[in-house]
């Protein structure tokens, strides 16, 4: 068996009495989309934070490309190859769309310690940024202030910034949230292709998208993985129906 690109091993995290992550072990293999679903407050975002940095697990390890990254700060995990999108867009709102994408490219390149040459005249950075914007369909909005984007466009920009990093694995926290049917459909198509560039750990509430995309699904309830399997296995799983899916399956 080939090695996982990204894996958590026995991650636990408590907030006081609340077990937000309870012995979570999941992995992400090359070329796949591994979806994580579960009710609100199940601990999905908390898990993402422990994978991407910013929150340290009480126990357990996070491995990226076989390396233990549990003690690395967020920015070094990003450098090691994690491309993350946020549940709530985290973008430089006063800056243009292009500037946000260029920031990603700059991070991917890794050297912000240049103080004189205009960053928007750097051909390499611009090319990387524009390519990412084109891929998500934002190229015509490059000069738009990010604050003026629609909610859906901001979600697209989140994805574009992650693309500029050329990551080894994508970690996406509800990229479809608030997109509307048309937007979800387009992004679903896009992510379907993207998995061949790098595998995607996908937290998502949109079940149509999850069932269409996921190679595997893990179900998180009260911080615990209650089931992992293919779409069919998960749809057929009784515990999952009771805990989360209900009629949707």
């Amino acid at each position: 068996m080939t090695e996982a690109i990204l894996a958590t091993q026995g991650i636990s995290k408590s907030f006081g009495a609340l077990k937000a992550s309870d012995d979570v072990s999941i992995d992400l293999m090359a070329g796949e989309i591994h979806a994580i679903i579960g009710p609100n407050g199940a601990g999905k975002s908390t898990l993402i934070k422990q994978i991407c940095g910013g929150l340290k697990p009480d126990t357990g390890t996070v491995k990226l490309l076989g390396e233990d990254v549990t003690d690395l700060p967020t920015e070094l995990r990003a450098r090691a190859g994690l491309g993350r999108t946020f549940q709530i867009s985290a973008l430089a709102m006063e800056d243009t769309v292009l500037q946000n994408a260029v920031l990603g490219a700059l991070g991917g390149q890794g050297n912000p310690w240049r103080f004189f040459k205009p960053v928007l005249k750097d051909k390499d950075l611009l090319d990387t940024a524009m390519e990412a914007l084109e891929r998500v369909g934002l190229q015509d909005h490059a000069k738009t202030r990010t604050a003026e984007l629609s909610h859906g466009q901001r979600r697209q920009l989140e994805v574009a910034v992650a693309l500029t990093l050329k990551p080894k694995a994508f970690v996406m926290d509800e990229p479809m949230a608030g997109l509307g049917t048309e937007g979800s459909k387009r992004l679903t198509e896009f992510l379907g292709d993207l998995r061949h560039q790098a595998p995607i750990l996908l937290v998502e509430h949109d079940m149509d998208a999850v069932f269409a995309l996921a190679d595997r699904i893990s179900v998180l309830v009260y911080g615990k993985v209650i089931a992992t399997g293919t779409v069919e296995e998960i749809r057929a799983n009784k515990d999952v129906r009771d805990a989360y899916l209900g009629d949707e399956a």
Binding site: A78, G107, P112, T164, L165
Partner: peptide, 8 residues
């Protein structure tokens, strides 16, 4: 948060 997640 964004700056960190792009590796800076």
């Amino acid at each position: 948060d964004r700056v960190e997640t792009v590796g800076l």
